[in-house]
Design a protein around this nucleic acid. Sequence first.
DNA 1: TGCCCATAGGTCAAAGATAGTCAGTTGACC
DNA 2: GGTCAACTGACTATCTTTGACCTATGGGCA
Lengths: 169, 169
Amino acid sequence: MRLSDSIESFIKTMLTQEEPEVELKRNELAEYFNCAPSQINYVLATRFTQDDGYVIESRRGGGGYIRIVRVCHGGGQKLLYLVQERIGNAIGEAEAARLIGQLAHERILSPSEANIMRAAISDAALAVPMPEPIKNAVRARTLKAMLTAVARENRPVPPPSAPSDETRL
Amino acid sequence: MRLSDSIESFIKTMLTQEEPEVELKRNELAEYFNCAPSQINYVLATRFTQDDGYVIESRRGGGGYIRIVRVCHGGGQKLLYLVQERIGNAIGEAEAARLIGQLAHERILSPSEANIMRAAISDAALAVPMPEPIKNAVRARTLKAMLTAVARENRPVPPPSAPSDETRL
DNA sequence: TGCCCATAGGTCAAAGATAGTCAGTTGACC
DNA sequence: GGTCAACTGACTATCTTTGACCTATGGGCA
């Protein structure tokens, strides 16, 4: 079995239902597997991607760490499907807006969450000089990151008709 | 846990709702944590910034002190200020995250709205080959677009005949 | 009154501690 | 033997901690 596979299963073993989050030290893990530290980055980059439903956070410097979060499935089945299969590597504004609208209609997103997402993937937000394909790639990543954030909250399935208008001050 | 984190929580424990102000002696605190006095300055500079909602005052010499004040502007002008003046044409991830965190603290954003925004301006969302300055420009535009969406929602645009005044956000 | 200096706090750059990136090498499989 | 995933190492980026040196304040004393 390849080293990368061993490291992958090691990490996945630590991620359980009750503990969907694990924090580790890159150097320690590398030493444990007797490999170059950058090997850890390789494993994370190839097996714990955004599209796989993971979120990676890290800090450098003294007391640094790498945190791996597996986004829970809970009521977010639909969200995970969008992130992992539907959206892909690029998406246009209109199509993204349609997906967001659909999620709002299904009450998976509140009206105000949907508005924020629409703003984030709007052409206005990406109005800097860059090729259209790049814009659509950024849009896709942004949308997936936002949906992942919602899925990560593992919120309860919304009640059938509750107008979940948040009380905002 | 990092020394800086310990000092940070120590100070934050002293800051409560009823007592949003704390005064301390730099040297005493440094001795308590058994570190260099300048470590205190480091903690203040990195974790108690204006963007985080704190104001620092101090005096040197005999009877010197450092006062940390938690400020709460609140106010409907906050979003407008951020969009029109504070954010500008480019902003880094950490700085943007701070502003979002403070808005959440002031309850201008719900926790979930804040999470979505953090995801939208994260490096993960912009992990596409492009120069750093462009990323920060996109981040600034994205953040401003999202905050504008929230502002519009809170205070719908009045009918065309109504002249805009300072009460409108 | 003014000068002296002890007593604070401020700045900044260097050193230490981690993690990230990327181009190039190695190796497994068709 | 070609190709693509796996792996490595040198270099880079970032965060923390410390220490040497700087500045401000205010009380004592000539």
